[in-house]
Simulated scan of single mutants.
Amino acid sequence: MKLNIAKTRVVSYTRKTNFLSYEYQLCHAIITRTSSVKDLGVFFDSKLHFHTHVNYIFSECIKLSGLIRSITYRFSSLESLYVLYFTLVRSNLEYASVIWNSITSTDANKIQRIKQKFESVCFYRFFPHISYTCNYTDALEKLSPQSLHKRRHHLDALLLVQVFRGLKSCTSLSENVSLCVPPSNLRDFSLFVVCPSNKHCSSARYAYPANSMGKDLDMFAIGTVSVNHISHVNEQKFVVN
């Protein structure tokens, strides 16, 4: 197999200011060095902060939101707007989020603004008698109270459940996270335990939202487990507590 030199890039993944930069060659041609590279739709920057990816999906989804706003001006159904939003916008905002969900709070708020802009359009069209700016909580209750940040955590928990159910394969995740067997019948316990040496890795990020559901999530039950099911379990647990 021949490699395309024009499409080959070199990226050094490190958070150090001064690092060793070596010029790699392929067929006597120097390979271009870059600070970020796109792989399967996700931009990986050299420090794995995913700022480039967040900026990319923000730019794309803002355009799609504007398109939805323009073509649905005469729509009389709120459900139709949400179908377009879920299909065109939210699917892009959540694509491969289990990879880049370690983003900063600033980037998370930036993504959340897209959802808020869409909700403001829906609110002004279908609930003109209620002030959106003064009654933001009421507006969210009428539209969709679940934030994108919470949905990404549910997707993290879903991946962990799917790995332990054998639906997906992830060797590093299954090695770093194990099931916790409580010594007695405790009311609250952690379903998953992370290896102490990997508490700051992505495996721990998957385990925390799954543990927040506790015994309310039967991960070995017959049938499929979706992100909507995990969201419902989490909401029920929040109401009970």
Rank of each mutant, 00 (worst) to 15 (best):
M1L: 12
K2S: 09
L3A: 10
L3K: 02
A6R: 11
K7S: 10
R15H: 08
T17D: 14
A29F: 12
A29M: 11
I30W: 06
I31D: 03
T32H: 11
R33W: 05
T34I: 09
K38N: 12
K38R: 15
L40C: 07
L40S: 06
G41N: 04
V42S: 06
F43P: 00
D45H: 06
K47W: 04
F50V: 01
H53R: 05
H53L: 07
V54I: 15
F58A: 06
C61G: 00
C61Y: 08
S65A: 14
L67Q: 14
I68S: 00
I68D: 01
I71A: 11
I71Q: 13
Y73K: 15
R74I: 14
F75N: 03
Y82A: 06
F86A: 09
F86T: 10
T87I: 07
L93T: 01
Y95L: 13
V98M: 12
T106L: 13
T106N: 11
K110T: 15
I111P: 01
Q112D: 15
F118Q: 00
E119M: 06
E119Q: 04
Y124I: 11
Y124K: 15
F126H: 02
F127A: 08
Y132T: 06
Y132G: 02
L140A: 02
S144W: 05
S144G: 06
H149S: 11
H149L: 10
K150H: 06
R151S: 03
R152L: 08
R152S: 03
L160G: 04
V163A: 09
F164A: 00
F164C: 01
K168S: 12
C180P: 01
V181M: 09
V181W: 10
F189H: 15
F189P: 00
V194T: 04
V194F: 05
C195Q: 13
C195K: 08
P196I: 01
N198S: 12
N198Y: 14
K199W: 08
H200N: 13
C201K: 01
C201E: 07
S202R: 14
A204P: 01
R205I: 12
K215W: 10
D218F: 11
M219C: 07
I222N: 09
I222A: 09
V225S: 04
V225G: 03
V227N: 02
I230M: 01
S231P: 04
E235P: 00
Q236H: 03
Q236F: 05
